[in-house]
Design a protein around this nucleic acid. Structure first.
Length: 480
RNA sequence: GCUCCCUUCGUCUAUCGGUUAGGACGUCGGCUUUUCAAGCCGAAAAGAGGAGUUCGAUUCUCCUAGGGAGCGCCA
């Protein structure tokens, strides 16, 4: 790339009309990583020119989602609506009008809709027919008299073509005659997206526009506007889309699509960020896990894929598990707390240290933070036997006897430490020629009620002598 | 319908004309192990199809097929 590192300026420009979508945040991530890797500036701009659908909650969700993922912006947030209020767009619209590069259009939405349908039916491209391109002043007056409010359309060049070099797709070429005279100002006086982005990006001196593939067909039209206004064109880069398992663009019906949903499901921001970075991008050695700050250094837009990527929850789960396993005990506990509270576990009788010990017991097993409460709940709720334990393990012939002996041994313990438990239990097994499972299984079942769980002796130590003995006694009474 | 785009294991991907087509998730097998995980070792698994260019194509070109996106006074 010939671009000077210092002057790279990119932006994420979401519209605040819903939750922060996973596809949107991926675009944000790539812009952010591009800026960081090039030592450039990452800008956030809220595209709120849709007066009817933009909401303050959405704007808030965008901020929160980005902050959660650590996508900090260097400039902004800017709001498109504020630009409109300042009349910035109006100024350029007027310029185009004066230069004869735009014109007023009095067609109604209904008329246009009909024309579009007819065109499709007749197998013609559904572009605007240009009816209002050359209206006389009399025509205009007539329409005004009818109460029609005009929109402003950009006059597309009729021949020739637009060509640009896309950062991820290479040379892209469109014929001008396939382009429609798009509306740049609505009847309400507000600019349309396609016009506003051009003005904003030009005025904010964006050097690169990195956005989703779904915008690629707008690009030639926008480039023509750049040219008409005498603005320097930015370098374009169109990222492939993220698809659901069925191969179509990710949407609500594919399940979780908003960033908060992932947060609520117990995913770590670092894991989601790492996973998203790998959707449609890779290093030459296909590195999977990136340390803090590593993506920011290693990102290279050349590693971007042209074809869409399917979002794979299973791999995300694995990656999240990797990140959870690498957490320090305190971090893990802090992160788990909201989920433990949400699950309603009564932890009031446990010290913070004890809680940490318990949570860490199965750290390598957690794929999400959300599954933590369920996996540790037996420490906090009344003993309840799994069917397998009560129907098979405890009622196996000879079990009562074994548990009775264990009870006697444990009664004499001083420390009740993991180490003491393990050595003495094992020598008891050896002395009596028992098999490991013969003793361990009923022991685990008697104390936890479950057939699997954390390392047995650690678990026993966690419960403590009194509780273990109490539970053993209970089990003895119902075993055979 | 029109315009544009895409096509390597099931999934994410590496490969800048010559490789036993590599890695990761998942799957299967083994080891380890008191259980479930984790960990370690191993296996199966891919160039959509057809032409061409070339001494040689996954890689370059074209066609076909399949898939996707866009076609708003939405962004």
């Amino acid at each position: 790339m010939t671009q000077n590192k210092q002057i790279v300026r990119v932006r994420f420009a979401p519209s605040p009309t819903g939750h922060l979508h996973i596809g949107g945040v991926r675009t944000a991530l790539f812009n952010y990583l591009f800026a960081k890797s090039m030592g450039g500036t990452f800008i956030l701009r809220i595209e709120d020119t849709d007066e009817t659908r933009s909401t303050a909650e959405s704007t808030k969700a965008i901020f929160e989602g980005m902050k959660w993922l650590g996508l900090t912006w260097d400039e902004g947030p800017f709001y498109q609506s504020e630009q409109a209020d300042k009349g910035i767009y109006k100024k350029y619209i007027d310029k185009l009008l004066a230069d004869g590069k735009a014109y007023h259009c009095y067609c109604t939405p209904e008329e246009l809709d009909e024309a579009r349908k007819l065109a499709m039916k007749e197998k013609r491209p559904p572009k605007y027919g240009g009816k209002c391109r050359n209206l006389s002043d009399d025509d205009k007056k007539k329409f005004e008299a009818e109460g029609r409010k005009p929109t402003v359309r950009f006059k597309m060049p009729e021949d020739g073509f637009v060509e640009f070099e896309d950062l991820v797709r290479g040379i892209v070429k469109f014929e001008n005659k396939t382009l429609t005279d798009l509306v740049i100002q609505k009847a309400s006086g507000y600019p349309t997206y396609n016009f506003a982005v051009v003005i904003d990006d030009a005025l904010m001196k964006m050097t690169h526009i990195i956005r989703g593939d779904d915008h690629i067909s707008n690009t030639p039209s926008q480039l023509n506007i750049y040219d008409a206004l005498g603005f320097e064109r930015p370098i374009m880069g169109h990222l492939s889309m993220i698809h659901g398992a069925d191969g179509t663009k990710l949407s609500k019906r594919h399940g979780a699509t908003s960033v908060v949903e992932y947060k609520n499901k117990g995913y770590l921001p670092q894991a989601l960020k790492n996973y998203l970075a790998l959707l449609g991008w890779a290093t030459e050695d296909s590195q999977q896990i990136f340390a803090e700050g590593e993506l920011e250094k290693k990102f290279d837009i050349k590693g971007c894929q042209k074809s869409p990527a399917v979002f794979d929850d299973v791999k995300l789960d694995w990656m999240n598990g990797e990140y959870i396993r690498n957490l320090f005990t305190k971090e893990l506990k802090e992160l788990a707390m909201p989920f433990i509270e949400e699950a309603g576990l009564d932890i009031s009788n446990f010290s913070s240290e004890k809680l940490e010990t318990i949570i860490v017991l199965e750290q390598e097993k957690y794929k999400t933070l959300k599954e933590i409460p369920e996996l540790i709940s037996f420490f906090f709720t009344p003993l309840k036997f799994e069917e397998k334990v009560s129907n098979k393990v405890l009622v196996k012939e000879g079990t009562k006897d074994i548990l009775q002996k264990i009870y006697e041994i444990y009664s004499g313990f001083e420390t009740f430490s993991e180490k003491e438990l393990e050595t003495k239990t094992k020598s008891f097994i050896a002395d009596n020629n028992f098999k490991m499972g013969q003793v361990f299984q009923p022991l685990r079942g008697a104390v936890s009620g479950r057939s699997n769980g954390p390392a047995l002796f650690k678990m026993l130590e966690c419960f403590g002598k009194d509780e273990v003995l109490k539970r053993l006694q209970n089990a003895i009474s119902i075993s055979k």
